[in-house]
Amino acid sequence: MSRPQSLLPLSREPSTRLLPWIIGVMVYLAVLIFAAALLLANIAANWDREMSAGFTVQIPPAAGDAPEALEARVAAVVKTLKEAAGVGEVAVVSPEVTALALEPWLGPNIEAHDLPLPRVVEVHFADRATVDMAALIAKLEEAAPGTVVDNHEFWRNQIVSLVGGLETLATVAIALIGFTAMAAVIFTTRSSVAIQRDVIEVLHLIGATDDYVAHEFQRQAFWISLSGSASGTVLAVATLYLLGQLAGNLDTALMPDLSLGAWQSVLLWAVPLLACLIATMTARRTVLAALRRMP
């Protein structure tokens, strides 16, 4: 004897045939957007880590200063920094390197010593918690008046604000995708209930509970959504792989790290499973609501 046939052959209905495609497209978009949000969060975290690891000190040349006087002020700044608690590596950026950094704006043929370029000192924290920035800034001002300390606060705030905005946008986009998919499931399930009304009535009259009927719908909704989710996920992973390959061909110095952590990969794979769960539960609730209106 063959296994029992499906009581409600939803997958054969015209209204249901499109559902795996709709769910597949929704999952594809949701996985891509979610992956983009995770990568963005990683990049922002890396930038934040790098920028908060230290600060930059600029010593502008005073008018009429001889080069030796500027060097003496740089030496005073370095000495003050090295004596400060919590300060680790202190590196003086040579005028040539500073000029190189300005090359995109000033052109390639600039003579570093001909321009009143500030001297730059890059400082890394050894122990950020023990550094008293206000006191250090005061000491630096005393050692070399006119010294400017940039702790990257401005850039960090800008990035945090940008990333926050993009993450909100991603959340809204994923929520919209979720609502659209739910609406498609509700519409399809309602159509199926209407199409299968005669069979449902017979099931009720032979003693089937609403839960029994709803279980038939949710079982099939699960398999339909699983097939759609699987297709969408495979396509999304293939797309991410291709984008990764393209990014790998670019200059690594320009590109931030575009890999996901282990737990982030787990979260990404949870998207299709969550889509299945939402589709199944939506179908169940829709059917139960429709059945309650029947005699």
């Binding site: 004897m1 029992p4 046939q5 009581l7 052959p9 017979v202 099931l203 089937a208």
Partner: peptide, 23 residues
């Protein structure tokens, strides 16, 4: 009021399946 896509066997089996009888 037979279920058109089910076999005669499955139609007759419906009340027992609904009641949770073993296959």
């Amino acid at each position: 009021r037979l279920v058109q896509h089910l076999s005669a066997f499955d139609n007759v089996a419906l009340p027992m399946r609904v009641a949770g009888s073993r296959e």
